[in-house]
């Protein structure tokens, strides 16, 4: 059992050392995303990611990696396994077609307070004997089903890394660590854990939802904003 734990620790540390290469500045969650505190979305409908890369498996990897970190951030996530099938049965195969539509139906039918759109812009994986990493560039938007406004968004590059060679500290270390501890517990060459790690980092700026014990109390939390 020793080795998986060691690997886990390294993943953890590596993950906390990302964003070294991007220009960043600090802001607070409350300043950056005031509408999250005003609307307090709880129920989230996650649309299938839009894949703008040539990696055919990116979409599936990424879509299975979204719900869990979102739940850990305190939200009720409508099960994607079911919603994906629903969308297909309605002839919606491509999230692109919904992007600019009014979203009130997502509330009417499903009770969703907000809809999460994600676009995968870059998906580079490297897997070698000494190091493996996944570099993902994601564009994400959480849009209100009531006001159609963007409540939260993220755009940036995330490196989920096993090599431990990244070189910048991350003050949100404890926060992320807490969230992913339960998230990653399988030692495998699959990219699901990496994709999940990427989502955890993606979500580090999101104001917590109702089921998080600091929900409503995190508006002064500092977040890193990538330029």
């Amino acid at each position: 059992m020793k080795r998986p734990i060691a690997v886990f620790l390294i993943v953890l540390v590596a993950s906390l050392l990302v964003s070294g290469c991007a220009t960043t500045h600090m802001a607070t969650k409350g300043d950056k995303f005031p509408l999250m505190y005003k609307e307090k979305p709880l129920v989230i409908f996650v649309l299938p990611p839009i894949n703008s890369t040539t990696a055919v498996d990116a979409k599936e990897y990424y879509s299975t990696a979204i719900p869990q970190p979102l739940a850990f951030a305190g939200f009720y996530v409508i099960p994607m396994q079911i919603t994906d099938e629903l969308l297909k049965s309605q002839g919606i195969y491509d999230t692109e077609t919904i992007v600019n539509q009014p979203l009130n139906r997502f509330y009417e039918y499903f009770g969703a307070d907000a809809v999460l759109f994600t676009r995968i812009i870059k998906w580079d994986k490297s897997y070698t004997v000494i190091a493996s990493s996944l570099t993902v560039t994601i564009d994400a938007q959480l849009k209100s089903t009531k006001s159609n406004l963007i409540l939260w968004k993220y755009s940036g590059t995330i490196v989920a890394n096993l090599s431990g060679q990244s070189n910048s500290g991350n003050p949100l270390a404890n926060l992320i660590a807490n969230v992913i501890i339960t998230g990653i517990n399988t030692a495998t060459a699959d990219y699901v854990p990496y994709a999940q790690l990427a989502t955890v980092q993606l979500l580090q700026s999101v104001p917590f939802g109702k089921y998080h014990n600091r929900s409503g109390q995190d508006s002064q939390d500092k977040i890193i904003v990538q330029k």
Partner: peptide, 29 residues
Amino acid sequence: PALLGLLLFAGCATPPVSYYYGNYSQALY
């Protein structure tokens, strides 16, 4: 240093939300 820092954090922090997921994402994928 990062590892040590992390261990310090890990020592005093309780997970904010506790859910058990087992091998769900792997199986789903």
